[in-house]
């Protein structure tokens, strides 16, 4: 029985992923031509802008989420009575269809004349992935002994200084998890980009989707995916190095 279960995941998960890597080295066809070629990777080199845009958006959104998410986590932790209720409120939007929530932003942004600009994308992404920052932060804050903060104040630091020098370092596991989550999710996004940003602000996710579903250029799509994954792994690796040098 175990083998059957394992077999399912090998067939529907592992093999498809290996196929993608395989496809990245083939030629465009209908949909694929089984002849070796580096066409896909060569075309990928033209995609510098979408990659940079994705990295840029991911970085900005990650830090915005930290900036907004931290106070929110503080609010939740501060009240013992309402904690569960507040957590529920943070998680509830998850249960609603995210397209619907983006649509709400479309209405708002249209009124504010921000639709189609990079700001629209940033606002949208920050909104959608904020809970992914709030929850790990809350988790770390819950275990944080607030007396350490008061000790710092006592020794002369201002509120803001105490937070930056004392609180954040103590909850750094939560901060790291949150940043990583948001970064990776934002990097791979294409829906928010598509609906709020438009073609001018295309991220790599949109490029990949277009390659697969619009231009039907699978080798291109596959190589873009492979390169994106490698990029993300680099970010992940840098994040780990930061962890071991930081503490």
């Amino acid at each position: 029985m175990k083998k059957i279960v394992q077999g399912w995941y090998i067939l529907f998960l592992l093999i498809p992923i290996l196929l993608v890597v395989f496809c990245s080295f083939l030629t465009k066809g209908s949909p694929i031509d089984f002849s070796f070629s580096l066409e896909g990777y060569k075309r990928t080199l033209h995609y510098g802008f979408p990659f940079l845009r994705s990295l840029g958006y991911a970085t900005v959104v990650s830090f915005l989420c930290l900036l907004i998410g931290f106070p929110t986590a503080v609010v939740i932790v501060s009240s013992k009575k309402w904690r569960a209720m507040l957590l529920f409120l943070v998680i509830l939007p998850f249960w609603t269809n995210f397209l619907v929530r983006i649509y709400g932003w479309k209405i708002i942004l249209r009124q504010l004349d921000l639709l189609g600009t990079p700001w629209a994308v940033i606002i949208g992404l920050t909104y959608i992935y904020l809970p992914f920052m709030i929850l790990p932060l809350y988790s770390s804050l819950e275990r944080f002994d607030s007396r350490i903060y008061f000790a710092a104040r006592d020794l002369g630091a201002s509120g803001l200084q105490s937070i930056i020098k004392v609180v954040l370092p103590c909850i750094s596991p939560g901060v790291r998890v949150g940043l990583l989550f948001v970064f990776i999710l934002t990097f791979g996004d294409f829906v928010v980009n598509d609906l709020l940003g438009g073609a001018k602000n295309a991220m790599i996710g949109s490029s990949i989707r277009d390659a697969y579903l619009l231009s039907r250029n699978w080798p291109l799509g596959a190589s873009l995916t492979v390169v994106s994954t490698l990029l993300l792994l680099c970010v992940f690796w840098i994040g780990r190095k930061w962890r071991s040098s930081g503490t």
Partner: peptide, 29 residues
């Protein structure tokens, strides 16, 4: 962290922010 009212204010606004688009959609419906 009682003194840092501005921190908490951002927090409260963020919670409202989470429901803003949803509220807009419901109203517009």
């Amino acid at each position: 962290m009682a003194k840092l009212w501005y921190i908490k204010l951002i927090g409260y606004f963020a919670l409202l922010f989470l429901y803003l688009p949803i509220a807009v959609v419901i109203v517009m419906s």
